[in-house]
Design a protein around this nucleic acid. Sequence first.
DNA 1: GTTCGCTCACTTTTT
DNA 2: GTGAGCGAAC
Length: 807
Amino acid sequence: MAQGGKHIANVTPPEAADDPPFDLPEAPPREAEPSVSARALQRTTAHTYMDGLNPEQRQAVEALDGPVLVLAGAGTGKTRVLTTRIAHILASGRAYPSQVLAVTFTNKAAREMKERIGDLVGGAVEGMPWLGTFHSIGVKILRRNAELVGLSSGFTILDTDDQIRLMKQVIEAEGLDKDRWPARQLAALIDGWKNRGLTPDKVPAGEAYGFATGKGAHLYAAYQRRLKELNACDFGDLLLESLRLFLENPDVLADYQRRFHYILVDEYQDTNVVQYLWLRLLAQGSPNLCCVGDDDQSIYGWRGAEIDNILRFEKDFPGAKVIRLERNYRSTGHILAAAAGLIAENKGRLGKTLFTDDQPGAKVSVTAVWDDEEEARGIGGDIEEMQQARQSLDEIAILVRASFQMRAFEDRFITLGLPYRVIGGPRFYERQEIKDAIAYLEITANPVNDLKFERIINVPKRGLGDTSVKRVRELARMRSIPMYQAAQLIIETEELTGRARKSLSDLIANFERWRSVISHLKHTELAELILDESGYTAMWQADKSPQAQSRLENLKELVRSMHEFESLQGFLEHVSLVMDTDQAAGGDRVSLMTLHAAKGLEFEVVFLPGWEEGLFPHQRSLDENGQAGLEEERRLAYVGLTRSKRLAKVSFAQNRRNRGLYQSALPSRFVDELPEDHVDILEAKMPFGGAYENFGGTFGNSYRRSRFDDAATPFEASYKTPGWQRAKARTREGFSRDAARKSRGPTTIEGELVASSTQQTSFKPGERVLHQKFGPGTIAGVDGNKLTIEFDEAGRKRIIDSFVERG
DNA sequence: GTTCGCTCACTTTTT
DNA sequence: GTGAGCGAAC
């Protein structure tokens, strides 16, 4: 990526001239060094890489010509197929490594693929320059052709923080009230537009109303202008701008089309509109497009993923071959059957039936508990028993719908002294101290990054407040120079007061000194020097808050992680895109994470707590996306169940403390959708025996009373007892039909309500409406059949049109 | 320029 | 109930 700039004039990549003859299987590598393809060829004779594939997998590997959709169910060997297919392409001499485009969503997936191809082909895969995430490939293409989209090849990539800081400035520059129109919201809006491939001029008028009374699109345009001035891109631009590059420069597009003979896409069900358009353009060059995915595991609709992309594949790519991988190598029979029964309730799916030759194993267990605390106690107890039975904790996971659920478990595990790890939380490079440290390093290496400079200009506090910063910024904009340079000028003048002037000139002097030693100091030593001399380390040492210690640890870890890189430059280039560190390490521990974070992982034992209406499926998902939202939630449940190899344990609480408030809850409809033949109803354990008797009467609420009154003790409820039978009946008829219609609107009614951006509503911005739960409000924006409504009481919400009436 | 206290929101999250 | 973020007071 670093040398990208040198390629600007030379759009044609050198390797393109060396395209191997397409139909000669044994196209010889021309280079002297043993290339990946050469090593792959050596392996061909041994045929090791195809060993052990089942017939469908083999078919997916060998179907090299034309469009192919591999529908790979959970645990059916998806990654194996992808990597083997690449190995096969290389080994059969069909293409050079540089002619294969392979895209993933996460760095982790890309890394894994590289490793596994390396294993198959026998060596590291330096020769696969186009295997990476959508974003990293977008950057690569953009850097080579930056001038064509108004950037220069050294453009910086903004992270979310920078993005928001910049948007705040844009909002203020437009003379808008930054409190009434929060930058976060604008960022989300613009992100959404970018995901859908919309440049500022293409934003539909109705949606632009949603922000700052119609100024949404205008702000978007202003923001894009500022980005160009700063020679910067946000994440969305990496794709949208490379799409624009292709559309506006047919010669560049044609060049890449010629280059990529084979295109492979992982997790196709997660692609958004831009990614789809981008792929479709590239695939026009070579029809050898292979998309691997599972429509049943599409759980990222809320961040722009279009499940339609995968559902439409055969229409988009006529003559496409569809291969289903249905043999599951992960879970035992009952778990698989329970998951299959659940997902069968979804309408919008291509349809697959997973099967296994494994044992039926244990049924999925369902447990009703009193509240979230008891749930945590129960699961904690179960885990301790398993631990005594020598079950490795690494193979146990608790998968929750929302992160606030984690708290109860963490509290409990801490009391029990049970080792656990939280996966997914704020990632290493997202932490404040890490971002600050990186900003220091960045400014030292590259003083033109204004947003990074603003980030640390007054961190630690050195008396440079808003007014001083504003002066510097204004001078920078007036002269069209970076703020760092403006700061250098301003300290020579009387612009700033004595104190501010002194500390700014000290800061600049520091940076100058650090920069002067870049070349003769090891980059890790330089980092330590900077963190010390800037007073940054001292700032946290002086901090007496409980997190300060771990922040210092993180800083040490940062320096440690820099050892892997050659130079400061090399390190900085990686952090802008490759923002993850391994979280898995650290001894035998129970894993705690959200269902979303669990996708792609597997565990022997999986606990699935919190299966309650309103939490899972989440109320907001239902409100905002209707039937489509419900189906996505159901897929999430399916993902949860299919993570489990041997034991899946579902539970739901009858009461949950949500936001300080103790509220009664009904079992999730998903509980009842699990096929009974594959489910075991367990009784909750009663660690405090008699104490529980009280709950029935004293603390009972109307729901609970009516459901469990008749049972001798509340927790003997099982499918067999009358109490449970009635509860179930109530859940099905009483709640799902009537109550649902009354209290939540018609979400659950079969299949009519689908959120869609194509379906237009008759509502217009400015109209007054009435919602059953949120009361009266005014429509602020329209997006298909989704309305953004400013409720008089409840604030701003996004709601499907059929949930409100004119009022 | 810093600190205190109030208000607000609170599903999921990668790059 | 809790934490973050912002405005007003020091």
